[in-house]
Design a protein around this nucleic acid. Structure first.
Lengths: 343, 343
DNA sequence: TTGAAAGCGCTAACAC
DNA sequence: GTGTTAGCGCTTTCAA
């Protein structure tokens, strides 16, 4: 393995103590210009690289944050991750990735320092299999930021968009287009489906405001928010006696799946069925037709999540949990309007 | 921060030495059943969790591998990563992610242990900005597995599919359909574009074999393999005096971009223009129309990459670099054949 | 400013 | 089988 020049060797060559080398390397404390230069020369000459492990062990921190998502190949998470990694790197943190497949047991492990103890200083977490209540029974000493739709219990921060409002806007857009049989794909009417239920709430709210009755058979629940579920749900909707003339999908992936089924059945979008998605992933911008969608400010979400986490990590006293709402907007594309505004 | 029960405390409670606790925890060496049980009880009682950092420092390894890709939000990498993380986890390794944006300087940093020293035991690397020659000037003590199209110089393993053959097959498929003006999108005729050039070679080879002359103006080069480049290139091709009747795209993303432009121009796929992609990402299965593509065995690539890396990490003597060819196949979908085989 | 030295928590060589 | 103990390489308190 690599030789590994140690701090001591540098100290010896420079004729100073380890302490001084450490100071120079870390830019800490005052060191006289002459000494600093001498040390620096020794560092260069020996090609010294600090051993991160040792540094962290001594300092009691790891310099790493973990990002835990259900699925890595979901474009939304991939795009978010990209942002998180960029920001973390700038702040001197490495990013450890884990993917839980939405498995509750697997997810729970990240709520405590557990066996990973000290491997990461904090976690940015997007839970899927855990219910709100699970989040409360956690090791509060582990800095945590939650992404997605949860309400903070005060021991962690939560960053996300206002799902109810966004969903309401998406539905209103469809209703405003004169559609009267607007379906919803993605409800999850069970304990761990709290996030999805917020979208359904927005959907109902929009109907209420518009004075259009909700047709319960048009609300389809799906286990996941992926293409295949979207395709299946759409097929089911089209087989109804009175199929919908519009669909609000709880993710762009679901919308893409719905579009796929619509194309197979030879239906025109948006003429026969208008489609709205959620997330604004790149796929949706290039699909045929491009998908109208709710676009969360991902850059801000990523930045805020890292920023908050580092604040927590850096603080010795408990930091109050914040509810942070990132902005979102509706982007209208050809899946709902024949001649959309140029975007 | 978390209290942190130490090995010594456990030892004290169990009335044994640290050595024994370590043995029990790690399942090492022989320990009498009675002792093991006593220690285990102490561990449980105290809620002892080994400090990974300390363990690694002492053992001289980190238990982490780094995976370095140009872009995380490229579905192909996301899908691959997913496989890599799964396998690594089973083998007890954590995965550190980095994304280079294809920046050569950034990539080069991963060819040496550099400042990250000891933070990871090995690297799975998919270079983009580096040329073949850059790979040779590296710190051979860092276990390395390269993904994508490179030839091993003997100091690392390389896992990938046979790009030339695959590209030839893709092109032959188009030629076999009777298309005579087959375009290619994705060539990169410069030093770091070696991978892309292999695809172009396969493209030419297919023409040669079929006795169809290559029209140089139909070979379009693009800086990246993304949707936007594909859309632009397609627009350019359609503006030619004699536009193509088929396109071989060097990635599915490029194909999706091309499809987008084709739809905008009101052209029919495959009737007017047939399209073939590369990578078999999920997007391509649900696009409108679904994309015929070269499908590399991603699962095997991921597994093999991790397996080889761990072999390198575990070996004290130099391991000869292997060239590993993963299988691939052409999947025919509606973007080239009106009534494709069910897939 | 700088030096000496005590750990950070664990592993493993060396004894018994 | 099990105990002792010397580090792994760095940070940092305490003196000087």
């Amino acid at each position: 393995m690599s030789k590994g020049v140690t701090l001591r060797e540098v100290a010896a060559l420079a004729g100073v103590s380890a302490r001084t080398v450490s100071n120079v390397v870390n830019g800490y404390a005052p060191v006289s210009e002459a000494t600093r230069e001498r040390v620096q020369r020794a560092v260069d000459e020996l090609g010294y690289r600090p051993n991160v492990l040792a540094r962290n062990l001594a300092a009691g921190r790891s310099g790493q944050i973990a990002v835990v998502v259900p699925y890595l190949d979901t474009p939304y998470f991939a795009e978010l991750l990209q942002g998180i990694i960029r920001v973390a790197r700038v702040r001197g943190y490495n990013v450890l990735i884990d993917q839980t497949d939405g498995d509750a047991e697997h997810e729970r492990r990240f709520l405590t320092r557990g066996s990973q103890s000290l491997l990461f200083d904090g976690v940015i977490f997007s839970p899927l299999g855990l219910a709100q209540s699970d989040l409360s029974e956690r090791d509060a000493s582990l800095p945590l930021v939650i992404l997605g739709e949860r309400v903070s219990d005060g021991s962690f921060d939560h960053v996300g968009i206002d799902d109810v409002t966004a969903s309401m806007e998406a539905t209103e857009h469809l209703l405003g287009l004169g559609r009267r049989r607007v379906a919803a794909i993605g409800d999850q009417p069970y304990r761990t489906g709290e996030a999805a239920q917020l979208r359904t709430r927005g959907y109902r709210l929009a109907h209420e405001r518009a004075g259009v009755p909700v047709r319960e058979e048009l609300i389809i629940s799906t286990p996941r928010f992926n293409r295949s579920d979207g395709a299946t749900a759409m097929a089911h909707l089209l087989d109804l006696e009175e199929p919908p003339d519009a669909v609000f999908c709880y993710s762009d992936l679901v919308a893409l799946g719905a579009l796929h089924t619509l194309a197979l059945r030879g239906l025109r979008v948006p003429e026969d069925v208008a489609v709205v998605g959620y997330d604004d992933i790149e796929d949706g911008r290039y699909s045929n037709p491009p998908v109208t969608t709710i676009s969360p400010d991902k850059k801000m979400i990523a930045e805020t999540a890292v920023e908050r986490l580092l604040t927590r990590i850096g603080s010795t006293t408990p930091v109050p949990g914040l509810e942070i709402r990132a902005p979102h907007r509706l982007i209208v594309r050809a899946s709902t309007v024949t001649r959309p505004h140029p975007s």
